Structures are given as C-alpha cells and as structure tokens.
Amino acid sequence: MRFLVLSRNATLYSTSRLVLAARSRGHEVTVADPLDFHIVVSRRRPSMFLGDRPVPRADLVIPRIGASITNYGLAVVRQFDMMGVPVLNTAVAIARSRDKLRAMQLLTRKDIDVPRTVCAKTPDSVDLALKFIGGAPAIVKLQQGAQGIGTMIAETPQAVTSLLETLWAMGQDIILQEYIAESKGRDYRAIVVGQRVVAAMRRQAKQGEFRSNLHRGGLGVRVNLDRRYCQAAISAVRVMGLEVAGVDMLEGRDGPKILEINSSPGLEGIERTSGVDVAGAIILHAERFVMRKSKRNAKKDLVLEQERRNRRIRQPVHFANGG
C-alpha cells in the first residue's frame, strides 16, 4: 500500500516511527508538510498540489496535524476526503477533539464523565462560574491547546479573575474546570487504536507542577488499565469519531473522568514507558481500515451498477407505427 503521512517534520519521533513501522511491512510511505499543499477548489473536481506537482497517489492518509496549524491542516485533510482518499482520522473528528468545550459537550451527552466544566465570557460571570465548579482552586484552559500548553491552575477566586481578564484581553476563548484534588497530580494516558486500548501509562507530575504531561517533566509508569478506564477511553474515542487517539483520564472518586482526547498523540513517551509497539499497531489497523474501505466501495459500485441496469430494463420500448 501507499501511505501518506501529514507531518511538519519527518524527523519527529512519532512520524519516523510510523514510517519505519509501515516500511517494515512492505508499504511505500511519503511524508509531507500540510503547509506545502495547495488546495484547488473547483466544481466536481477537488484536487491538490504538493508544490507545483499533483499530490502523490495514496491508498491512505495518516494525519499528524499539530495544534499550531489546525485550521489549514484540517482543510488539507478535508480535501483528501473530498477526493475519495481514505483518511485515518477525519477532519470533522479531529476538529471535535481539538475544541475542548465541544468535546466535553459531546462526551457528557453520551453519559461519559468529565470534570465539571464551565464556559465564562465576561468578568461579571466569574463568581457564578466558580460556584458551578466548586470554587477555587480551579483549572483554566484555552479551548485549543496540547501537551499541557494553555492549561493553568488558579488557587484563589482573585487569581481566576485576573487570569481570565488577561486571557480575554488577548482574544482567547477560555473554559474553567474543577480541580480534582484526589488525583494528586497524576493521570492516565491510554492509546486507543481501532476501538482497542493498545497501551497505557500512569503519569505523575513533578514536584511543584500540577500538569502530568511528559513534556512538562512528568514521570510515566506502565500500567494495566482497569476495565472501567479502558471502556471510558474507548467510548470517548468512539464519540469523537476517531480511529486513533490518546485519551487522558483522571482518577475521580466515582471512577475515570475524561480530561482530553488527542487525535495526534505522541508516541515516544508511551512506547518507551509501556514497551508496546504503538506505531506498529497503528499501521496494522491502517491496513485493515483500507481493506474495509475498499470492500465498502466495491459493494457500493456493485449496487450502483445494478441500479443502472434496472433503470435500462424498465425503460419503455417504442414500436414504429404499423410494426
């Protein structure tokens, strides 16, 4: 098969691991920067160029869209979808997971537990918003962010108000979230591939830090997730409509609480901590994904061809006068 990996940098650990895993299984792989594509929108003929050449033929596109290029990256993924090229994680699914408030809304609609979350837009609403989430300390998050970037803790109501006013003045959309004290600075990261948890780890924040992300200095430990946590992670990814995702969960008093769903999860920390070949699992699922798509398309073509034949049979036959 021919795989096209969308990534800003071919030397990144996650990108290079996917390339090696695919090539080890005999696939051709091309890595391309999403910003290098030119999207051509025309009637009935959506197309794209990589530089001044048509995009290379691909059986599947694997998006690794960084948060800094979300909008254009999603446009590129959407264009491939319109061109009929299978995409592992669609633009719609990626967009859902990137918007933290929207993701929380979709999850709770399916009865999946999350930390209490409030969206506030004016200084006058801060006190009431804090009341809804149980008061300070509170977690302040940008609606777009990854790897702990844009996630802050405010210890007092005054600190919450000051932080929100500063961020609003910068034009940022903010959500407030309850602080889950019982998690004690740790969370769980599960990698879900094709409705199955393939690897998991527990992350512990370093001293003086509440964010447990490995990029923030957190320590990762391999774990065998409890069934409830596996099911919560799988259900969350299914709600987003993703094929591959990293799910971050807190350990609440009543069980797992979904913190975030990452459509382009980093592989370095989870592979080294768990010892699992996550890249290989993604490529294996990609192969099955392409095969299923091919079978569905073949079946659809067969149905359309049969409908065309039926229409020809039903057309009335006209005889010449006197025949």
Rank of each mutant, 00 (worst) to 15 (best):
A200R: 02
Q207P: 10
R202Y: 00
R189N: 09
R189Y: 08
L167T: 00
A181H: 14
I191T: 12
Q195D: 15
Y179W: 14
K184N: 15
I175P: 02
R189A: 05
D173L: 11
V198N: 00
G194Y: 06
A199S: 10
I180R: 11
E182T: 14
I175S: 09
R211N: 09
Q207R: 14
E178L: 04
V192N: 01
M170E: 14
E165Q: 14
E182S: 15
I175K: 06
E182D: 14
L176S: 06
E209Y: 07
Y179K: 07
K206N: 13
L167S: 01
D187P: 08
N213R: 04
A205F: 09
H215C: 12
Q177A: 07
R203T: 05
G218Q: 07
V197S: 06
W168N: 02
Q207I: 14
E209I: 10
L167A: 02
S212N: 11
A181L: 12
I191W: 03
A190W: 03
F210A: 10
Q207S: 15
S212D: 10
V192M: 01
D173M: 10
V192Q: 02
A169Y: 04
S212V: 08
E209F: 08
L176K: 04
L164G: 04
Y188H: 10
G217C: 11
T166M: 07
L167P: 00
L164M: 14
L164Y: 06
R202M: 00
A205K: 05
K184Y: 14
V197W: 04
F210V: 12
L176H: 06
